[in-house]
Design a protein around this nucleic acid. Structure first.
Lengths: 228, 228
DNA sequence: AATGCGCGTAAAGACGCCGTAAAGAAATGG
DNA sequence: CCATTTCTTTACGGCGTCTTTACGCGCATT
């Protein structure tokens, strides 16, 4: 049975999460603050954690760093509209995705499913299908409409990192640090240039990307097939 | 059976509410002051509370905050004409709607029905129908007369929050705090600008809005179909 | 009759983020 | 050495937001 830890202080939202996730067959463990969340993450060994960033005792980002010291469980962050900066820091701290309040049931479940799928996916990336394009991460080869497409080293590393976090948000910082190296975490312009190249090579319509999605002010997200 | 708690000190109004609501088949529990109201809210677990703002012992707003600590039951406020300010504070404290004295039977029952409907609505917002317009809150897409309409992020957040409180009043403060963030709770002008955009995009006749209703001096109210 | 307030409407400039394009210099690898 | 790739810069345009200014209207107060 899949267990989800919910760390949230507002009773209303907690109730909503409990009923929504419960109805989907997940077991829900609730913690009203960060301290309890930290303990419950250790004792209940949940398959996924949903963490509100604004907690009464200490910061959700701290909690995420705490958990990341010993676990790689998927973490989905709940953030309010105005916490743009905090949200990004939470992602940099190791969160996998975020949901902005107010959110709908569909969005919540989609994100949860994506995160669980991501965690369960075998480490072998295998073949990645993006509409009419296909990528073999092992063989470092890509095709579009049957014809092979050549990817340069940077393009490939960028794609590989996005694919490693398939469906999850990856911040500008993370991408730049990973693909170009830590000194380049501010060169967001490089990202725009190379994202365009990937889109040109792999998207059916580069003007309306369906797989290489922009998360404005945050980063990018690679979506394979049939995901919101 | 649906139970309604009435917190009201004036015996005449109490009698009126009792008979009106009773005739509609509601069970009515009466409390003459805030303290009793607080207790009865806990013991009788009503499905809805009607609270007069001017109570002999302590303030109706206090009572609302009290109840909101543990319950999300719909709360409808009774206010006199000159209590504009108090009324808004009551809404900010967590009330869902208000009725201004003197009020008629029709208005009372309409508000009560709307509040109960709102509380019973499944958390899945799904499709929202506003006359000739349609909004899919999950997919973040909107249509009008069949054609898709593009909503900007702020427009969408504004709409989503109104939809979350469908049929209920939402104060300027609540909207601004939620959509723009707490530092913006005074910028009511932003609301006017973006409400107009939503009306332009989704109302059939933006000059005579039938869904995005203004509650003058208070806030706004989103009404789907077939509501007063 | 005058004033003020809340609201709707319009418009305009500044700014940030993103996408797009291009081009020369530097590095890399066969 | 030559071709490719990357690095780095410059520039433009679009979109959305932020913020301000201004005008008209209806309503209530004075």
């Amino acid at each position: 049975m899949t267990t989800i830890l919910v760390v949230e202080d507002e009773p209303e939202i907690r109730r909503f999460l409990r009923s929504t996730l419960g109805a989907e067959g997940y077991r829900v463990v609730e913690a009203p603050n960060a301290r309890r969340g930290s303990v419950d993450a250790g004792t209940h060994k949940p398959d996924l954690a949903i963490v509100d960033l604004a907690l009464p005792d200490y910061d959700g980002r701290e909690l995420i760093r705490d958990i990341r010291k010993w676990s790689s469980m998927p973490i989905v962050v709940l953030s309010a509209r105005h916490q743009e900066r905090t949200k990004i820091e939470a992602l940099d701290a190791g969160a996998d995705d975020y949901i902005t309040k107010p959110f709908g049931v569909g969005e919540l479940l989609a994100r949860v499913r994506a995160a669980l799928r991501h965690a369960a996916r075998s480490p072998a990336g295998q073949a990645l299908v993006l509409g009419s394009a296909k990528v073999d991460l092992e063989k470092r080869r890509a095709w579009r409409d049957g014809a092979e497409v050549h990817l340069t080293p940077i393009e490939f590393r960028l794609l590989a990192f996005l694919a490693k976090h398939l469906g999850m948000v990856v911040t500008h910082r993370q991408l730049l640090a990973e693909v170009w190296g830590p000194p380049y975490v501010e060169q967001t312009h490089y990202l725009r240039i190379y994202m365009k190249q990937l889109r040109d090579k792999l998207e059916a319509d580069a003007l309306r990307p369906r797989h290489f999605l922009t998360e404005s002010g945050v980063g990018y997200r690679l979506v394979a097939d049939e995901e919101p």
